[in-house]
Nucleic acid binder design. Structure first.
Lengths: 188, 188
DNA sequence: CAACATACGGAGCAGTGCTCCACTTAGCAA
DNA sequence: TTGCTAAGTGGAGCACTGCTCCGTATGTTG
């Protein structure tokens, strides 16, 4: 029934869209998420117009490229909560997952801020509920202070991942943040 | 003797340099640190050439504009250490000072990363020793874990300040980081 | 006042993102 | 097979960046 609700695109259009996704993924690895649109079009063997028709904004393209990984991260939240000793441990593990995702994407975290409000919104919309669930569970267990929102934590961790210096370990700093969260319950 | 080693610049050159500094400060407030160079030149009533002669790179201009405030922040470190109950409290207060400086500068933290390696280097060079002093004092007092470097902390806090969302409070997040630092000493 | 080094201004180049529309071609009906 | 039409394409072009270069203007000095 939904077979007819989606009027199948032309074969070349579908082919180009896939070529664009593949090319973009490759170019992002090589040149970072901020790579010139022309480069991506060239890598896919299509023109500028094609890229903008399939992905009206740069954010749409980035989202499409990373959608699977964001989904995986989101789905890992409940799983970690179920499989961990404490909610706080689950939260820490999940944050690690998120950090790992961001830091392996050459400039993604930086791109999240500078321009792309839409890109930012997608990540936040998808992941904040998951984060909130972990946060709530930990707060309910009395393991963490409850005055930090999921939004703030996600935003902060995202910011933390913007660095690229070899003497800087985003995972460690993010861990510090989560640790700090835990101190509230037993602090002066 | 050094009077002659510095061959006094022409009066108009000095005047323009000052006009540029004033104009840049004003434009940075209005449009952020990433404001187009043309805008700054126009605001100062000079041409493009003049701006680049006085400040070869954008970082030089930004550094010149904020030098005083960075100095003040650096000098506040030892003062806080001397005047606080504990080194950890001094560190927290100093970090707050640094965060306040960054967040009131519309986009400075973001600019620190995206392009300007030189800008970044200036801030880090000037402030890391101060941070290290506070960190060492707190570590010596057994108040914090000692496996986080001043570089990492400064870099992390700088990253944390990149946000501009009203529902995001960089000071709070940075405080969490410092709190997390303290948990190391009494943690499992 | 003259002459010259210093400093100025902005046209121009190269590199972005993104738009627009004349052209091409896939898919289909005859 | 052929021809039609709408979907899809490609890249020239525009607006906007940062930054350079050099002919021109002006402060300074003797």
């Amino acid at each position: 029934m939904s077979e007819e609700a989606i009027p199948r695109k032309r074969a070349d259009a579908r082919r180009n869209q896939q070529a664009l996704l593949d090319a973009a993924a490759a170019v992002f690895v090589r040149s970072g998420v901020e790579a010139p649109v022309r480069d991506i079009a060239a890598a896919a063997g299509v023109g500028m117009g094609t890229i903008y028709r399939h992905f009206p904004t740069r954010a749409d393209l980035v989202v499409a490229v990373y959608r699977h990984q964001v989904e995986a991260c989101a789905e890992a939240g409940p799983a970690l909560l179920a499989g961990s000793v404490t909610p706080h441990a689950a939260l820490a593990a999940w944050i690690d997952l998120f950090v790992d995702f961001l830091v392996t994407k050459h400039g993604l975290a930086a791109a999240l801020h500078s321009d792309n409000a839409a890109l930012h919104a997608y990540f936040l919309d998808r992941l904040i509920p998951v984060c909130a669930q972990l946060l709530d569970a930990a707060a309910a267990a009395g393991e963490i202070r409850s005055d930090v929102t999921a939004f703030e934590l996600m935003y902060g961790v995202g910011n933390l991942c913007a660095g690229v210096d070899p003497r800087y370990d985003a995972r460690r700093l993010a861990g510090l943040l989560v640790t700090g969260l835990g101190s509230g319950s037993g602090r002066a």
